[in-house]
């Protein structure tokens, strides 16, 4: 075997591996969607049925028994709201750190990011009690605030990296032109990193849409998100696979569609500005 053949073989092997991994990752989603169109009996049939007559019965039942739209609305409000609130804090903060760094800037950034490594359950009690005291349990406001705070470190880090790609001379030119700090941010920095800001917003929305710890612990019926809706389908009488699959499909669908539409920005965001 010569060099070229060897290279081709290893390339083919890599391609096959990639496909296997992709299929492994996609299979549960495929199975979930498939099961959502089965009847409960078909769902637990052994061996599993691949060919069957699809039914929409589960979806109707969910809309009948619960209010899917209310939960979906709650998911939208909290994930978008949390993201916007976090951006409101993170943009000025990242600007300051990127363009007016002090000796501790790197340390502070690292420390902020390190808070993401702590188990959230460690602060569940105090947060729960604070929410209770202020009557914020099961409200969207509480979730928006907490969502903003839990995503703040990663949003800061991403924006910091995007902002640092802007040449300092452009900001100096703006300063010579008499731009105030506010205008520097809104008229120069933000338009110049709009791609990065879009990626950050999208990634944050996706992360918050799927957030389960705080949604499950701090909400029930009033401010419950789609995550809470899915969880509510695990009842004491046992799991109804077809219905759980249907409700999970409904919970995933909006964010999958959003992800599909914006995959270019998302990939850029996930690679942390490494490729441009």
């Amino acid at each position: 075997m010569n060099e070229l053949q060897k290279k081709n073989l290893s390339n083919n092997l890599l391609t096959v591996t990639a496909w296997v991994c992709a299929c492994l990752m996609f299979f549960p989603i495929f199975w979930m969607v498939l099961t959502s169109f089965k009847t409960e009996l078909q769902a637990i049939a052994v061996p599993p049925k691949l060919v069957f007559k699809p039914t929409l019965e589960n979806f109707f039942l969910i809309q009948e028994r619960t209010s899917y739209t209310r939960y979906a609305w709650s998911s939208i409000v909290t994930s978008v709201g949390g993201t916007l609130l976090a951006m409101l804090i993170a943009i000025p903060a990242a600007y300051a750190m990127a363009f007016h760094p002090g000796r501790q800037t790197k340390g502070i950034l690292l420390w902020m990011l390190s808070t993401k490594m702590l188990p959230a359950v460690g602060v569940l009690m105090p947060v729960y009690l604070i929410c209770q005291k202020f009557g914020l349990l099961d409200t969207k406001i509480a979730l928006v605030v907490i969502f903003a705070l839990i995503n703040l470190p990663i949003i800061m880090m991403m924006l910091f990296n995007y902002f640092r790609e802007i040449p300092g001379e452009i900001l100096e030119a703006a300063r010579m032109d008499g731009a105030t700090v506010g205008r520097e941010v809104t008229q120069i920095v933000m338009p110049l990193s709009r791609g990065g800001i879009a990626s950050t917003v999208l990634l944050s929305i996706v992360l918050l849409w799927n957030e389960s710890f705080w949604s499950l612990n701090l909400t029930s019926s009033d401010a419950g998100t789609l995550v809470a809706l899915v969880a509510s389908f695990s009842s004491p009488e046992g799991l109804f696979w077809a219905k759980v699959s249907a409700v999970s499909t409904l919970a995933c669908a909006p964010i999958v569609v959003l992800g599909w539409l914006t995959q270019k920005q998302l990939v850029q965001g996930l690679s942390f500005g490494a490729i441009k």
Partner: peptide
């Protein structure tokens, strides 16, 4: 901006 000076940068620094 209040000094009455204008600067041309090495990298042009256009917006």
């Amino acid at each position: 901006s209040k000094r009455g000076v204008s600067m041309v940068f090495q990298s042009y620094a256009l917006y």
